[in-house]
Amino acid sequence: MIRLENISRTFFVGGRPVHALRKVSFSIAEGEYVTIMGASGSGKSTLLNILGCLDRPNAGRYFLDGREVGGMKDEELAAVRGHKIGFVFQAFHLVPRLTALENVELPMVFAGAERGARRRAAQKALETVGLADRAEHRPNQLSGGERQRVAIARSIVMKPAILLADEPTGNLDSRTGLEVIALLEKLNTSGMTLVIVTHDPKLGSRAPHLIRLSDGRVIEDVFPKGAVTAKRSINRAGERADENVAD
């Protein structure tokens, strides 16, 4: 589903190159639960932005469902972000003037969905995160944990294949953080690919697939529990098939 080949990303700060990512390669199969770990400045957020098609690498190739993202135009990228990927941010990023329901609806607004369908989908997403009774609340009337759950509802309202979470517990206390993680894991077991970026080792140990970054390089890409599901291996095979076709 996701395959990176020698992805490099270099920023220029004051005319000097800063190598945020250096020749990063790995793959993530459909339905996986991956944690990307690393110290601050290791390049993990940059990596997540590239995975989310918010940023483009300077070199290397990124295949999403067998299609190379590098050649896509703005419109296609927006469609990928809208339909295929759900974002969960550390700072929630809810629009303060909109209600919880309207915030959840937002991706469907950009996708041009009908009002009725939107309402139903948003309501259902709020139910999934257990906040159906908070639909008409504005973000400032919600607790931190509730805000993050609204943000999660928003990330799944388009039924994306991939959930990307950037330090989703960073602004929460450990108990609500754990609740949020549990919610994300529940969504993963229902079939969504989950990628969490964190510097918290406790979270990292929960995921079956761990990718560790340091100084812009992958220093570890392991399955600590050794559990490779049947689904994953099938997908790997499928991807290999795709490659053969592409070659």
Binding site: G52, L54, D74, E75, A78, A79, R81, G82, H83, F87, H93, V95, L106, P107, F110, A111, R154, M158
Partner: peptide, 16 residues
């Protein structure tokens, strides 16, 4: 700016 970044992350195109 924040909201604009968010809109883009949620699938808004430049034209939108």
């Amino acid at each position: 700016r924040n909201e604009i970044g968010l809109m883009k992350a949620l699938g808004a195109t430049r034209n939108q």
